[in-house]
């Protein structure tokens, strides 16, 4: 009965709210997806944070710091949304540290030059935005509202990345080479951000039925590629895919085969930076423990005084 009523509400495009009845699997799926999304924002601070102290101008420094700070904020919005499902942020962080929760594999790639700040903003944020715009219509109310807020704030992220790429592409020969190199390294990992092909994506079924996901991995990926090809042309950079070509009939780009072996290898912990990213997060968390303990102890003492 509950389940039927639940599905009817979903089909009628009604939002599910924290106190509503929901199938256990719906709750589990949401916790997994939202926490993975939150962890991605937080771990995603590292590859860009890596360049904040080396940003080459005052303007670049401020923009990059503000952007990475936004990612922390977006992580918080998402942890908040996840907490409404009855799980604490502390527990979610614990799951991350124990390797039980995942984050987007893209952040396991290193950022090796300043051009990578361009590539990450343009491609990685660009891919994320395509996904997030779609998720604004997700069926769970708090997640959907979080996405609306995030999309609004992220609108400058992709632009700042593209601006860096454009500047470098028209700069010195060294700068242009750096920009092309960054595109070469980030292109394939970016389009793999949308996940496995629909034919190999085991969980998509329920997620679509429950309208947690609104579009399939392949549809989102195609949308991103179609948007991005022209942008690369405008700034004179070449996308590293010899099979990329316009398909008049589909009114979309055909593209080459992705290296799924690499994808799964990174997902399973063998990317270039998996260990460092997690170690960095754990270290900050552990080193902050005495601060959190002190703040709690201080608050308790204050309450005693007040009572």
């Amino acid at each position: 009965m509950n389940e039927k009523y639940f599905q009817e509400r979903i089909d009628a495009e009604k939002k599910i709210e924290p106190k509503d009845w929901m199938p256990d699997d719906y709750r589990k799926h949401l916790i997994r997806q939202i926490s993975q999304h939150a962890h991605s924002e937080i771990i995603g601070m590292q590859p860009e944070g890596n360049w904040i102290t080396r940003a080459p101008s005052l303007r670049a420094k401020m923009i990059l710091l503000a952007k990475v700070q936004d990612e922390a904020g977006h992580g918080l919005y998402l942890y908040s949304a996840c907490e409404t499902l009855g799980i604490s942020r502390e527990k979610l962080v614990q799951q991350l540290h124990e390797g039980k929760a995942k984050y987007s594999s893209i952040f396991n790639y290193p950022t090796l030059s300043w051009a990578d700040m361009g590539a990450v903003g343009w491609l990685v944020d660009g891919a994320a935005i395509v996904n997030q715009v779609s998720l604004q219509r997700t069926s769970y109310g708090p997640y959907s509202r979080g996405m609306v807020k995030i999309c609004k704030e992220e609108s400058f992220h992709q632009r700042q990345g593209y601006e860096i790429m454009a500047e470098m592409a028209k700069g010195t020969a060294e700068q242009k080479a750096m920009a092309q190199d960054a595109l070469n390294r980030f292109w394939w990992p970016s389009i793999m951000m949308f996940g496995p092909q629909d034919s190999d994506s085991p969980r998509s079924g329920n997620a679509m039925k429950w309208k947690i996901k609104r579009q399939t991995n392949d549809a989102l990926r195609q949308d991103f590629i179609d948007k991005t090809v022209g942008q690369a042309e405008v700034i004179g950079l070449t996308i590293p895919d010899p099979d990329l070509k316009w398909n008049e009939e589909r009114q979309s780009y055909d593209f080459g085969e992705m290296d799924w072996e690499e994808f799964w290898s990174v997902v399973n912990g063998n990317g270039p930076c998996n260990k460092q990213r997690l170690a960095h997060h754990k270290k900050a968390y552990d080193q902050g423990k005495w601060v959190r303990d002190a703040a709690k102890a201080y608050a308790k003492k204050q309450e005693l005084v007040a009572n």
Binding site: L76, Y77, E83, R292
Partner: peptide
């Protein structure tokens, strides 16, 4: 939305930041 904070002053500050 919400924030985590151990005391009310921190709650106000964290809300301002976020």
């Amino acid at each position: 939305g919400n924030v985590h904070a151990s005391d009310k002053v921190m709650a106000l500050d964290n809300a301002r930041e976020l």
